[in-house]
């Protein structure tokens, strides 16, 4: 059987397959039709052109160069709404305004990976940006240049957007896997291995997924030595160090799953559960593996 479509985009390997309940569990399904794949690649490119802080021509790069009123793309609303919620639930430790903190630590467009000064706390949301919702869409007002970073939820959101696009084109049974952020739609169920962050040949558990999304976050990914990694506490400007090594979240959408997987580095699951319905797995630096009681799957440790 022919495998799924696979390609690299936004710096990540993607695999997309479609197929119904009869699809074997070990398969993502069949490849997309060429015109569906082209549409997917164009959608990803559009998202990157808007939201990547690693390319000069993006909207985010323009927002980082000068203050002003910025008309945001239509897809901004759900993502920024999630960020507003997570910002509140983590006491401002998770925020899209963390871009300059990441750049200070060396995670910048030039990819220097060397800190250029003391850690830089993120600017306050209320003092820096305001979102205006109008009939034409959503506008971002900034009082100063601000480096937005949607790394906490952007990739998961893009997984949703790609699946939405496919559904609108008549492909309702799909699995979209953007390297750790995955969403399955339609009749079938899939099994997702939870990779041990210290050993990529091992799984610490397996989760069953049906009409839902699972997103993973681990601090070994995109680490650049000397205690530096990409999950930054916006209050201190430093990489978070609370003993959480890796998180996995199952939720209805990959946007929510991705954002919560990052938020679990800053907040206890019980607090996040005040606002969201989700299942979770968390690995801490003492080797302990915790999970929510409702998780559909099994843990091996």
């Amino acid at each position: 059987m022919v495998g799924p479509s696979s390609f690299e985009a936004i710096g990540t390997p993607w695999r997309i397959g479609h197929g119904g309940a009869e699809t074997p569990v070990g398969s993502l399904g069949a490849a997309l039709a060429p015109d569906d794949l082209t549409a997917v690649l164009e959608r990803i490119e559009q998202f990157d052109r808007d939201w990547s802080r690693f390319r000069d021509d993006s909207l985010v790069s323009r927002i980082a160069r000068e203050a002003g009123s910025w008309r945001l793309p239509a897809d901004a609303r759900p993502m920024l709404a999630l960020y507003e919620q997570l910002h509140a639930l983590t006491d401002a430790r998770l925020t899209p305004l963390v871009g300059a903190s990441l750049e200070r630590l060396g995670y910048d467009a030039a990819y220097r990976l060397t800190p250029s000064g003391a850690p830089l706390p993120a600017p306050s949301w209320a003092d820096t940006i305001a979102l205006r919702h109008t009939v034409e869409g959503i506008t971002l007002d900034t009082v100063a240049p601000v480096v937005l970073d949607v790394g906490a939820a952007g990739k998961g959101y893009l997984v949703d957007l790609v699946g939405d696009l496919l559904a609108a084109r008549g492909v309702g049974d799909s699995v979209v896997d953007a390297s750790g952020d995955v969403r399955v739609r339609g009749e079938r169920s899939i099994r997702v291995a939870l990779e041990n962050p210290a050993d990529p040949t091992k799984a610490v558990g397996v989760v069953e997924l049906h009409n839902a999304a699972l997103c993973a976050s681990a601090i070994n990914r995109r680490a650049w030595g000397n205690g530096l990694h990409h999950i930054i506490d916006a209050v201190t400007g430093l990489p978070v160090d609370q003993g959480v090594i890796a998180t996995w979240v199952v939720a209805d959408t990959a946007l929510v799953a991705d954002g919560l997987a990052t938020a679990l580095f800053f907040a206890e699951p019980v607090r996040l559960a005040e606002a969201f319905s989700f299942e979770w797995v968390r690995l801490t630096s003492d080797g302990r593996l915790d999970a929510s009681p409702g998780l559909r799957g099994e843990l091996f440790a």
Partner: peptide, 27 residues
């Protein structure tokens, strides 16, 4: 400090799974 030893897990090759979620970039 031995995270790998504390949480060993099961060989991914031995599991019947559709997708692996984790630090795929580095692997």
């Amino acid at each position: 400090g031995g995270i790998a030893e504390k949480v060993i897990g099961t060989d991914i090759d031995d599991l019947d799974v559709t997708v692996v979620a984790g630090s795929s970039l580095t692997s």
